[in-house]
Amino acid sequence: MPEPFSGTTTHSPITHHILSVLVENKAGVLARVAGLFSRRAFNIYSLAVAPADAHERFSRITIVVDAESAPLEQVVGQLNKLINVVEIRDLGSNEALERELLLATVHVAHDERDHLLESVADAGASVVDVSDEAVTLTLSGTPTALNAFEAMLAQGYPSREVQRTGRVALPRLNHSATQA
């Protein structure tokens, strides 16, 4: 398992970029997009794809990639050349609002759950399924919050299965007028 991004880390000269790519929702598009990264041996850290409009004519691909800026710029240039790519936004980690969803099934007996449920409440997570042997939890939030939650689970609960969606992102709003 690779170390997850903390969400704000920028260790020079490698940095993480979030590319938000609007594509035509057609067969093979994802392979074309992914092919430009694999050609340069850039690891795609996470990937989220979903239809972007009611008619499902377009999809939004959110790609988190760990790469130096200069070669990434070339990849973005080449992504732009793909006939099915409509629009690309390259969001630096500071300008992106990122969210991700986590599901975790934790094997823990009924009478040992109090501490877990307390932590779940603290983290803003919730319980979505329960059995005698296990509970399934969900948390949506920033990658940092999900990392912390995953770390907590890792510490206390050896028997668990965790899945994350990969992040989606939008640019932060311009706060110059209404700085909070």
């Binding site: 392979a31 092919g35 050609r39 006939i83 099915n84």
Partner: peptide, 14 residues
């Protein structure tokens, strides 16, 4: 062949 030529065509169609 569309997979093979993906990186060496401007575009391809099936």
């Amino acid at each position: 062949i569309t997979g093979i030529t993906m990186g060496i065509t401007k575009h391809n169609w099936l």
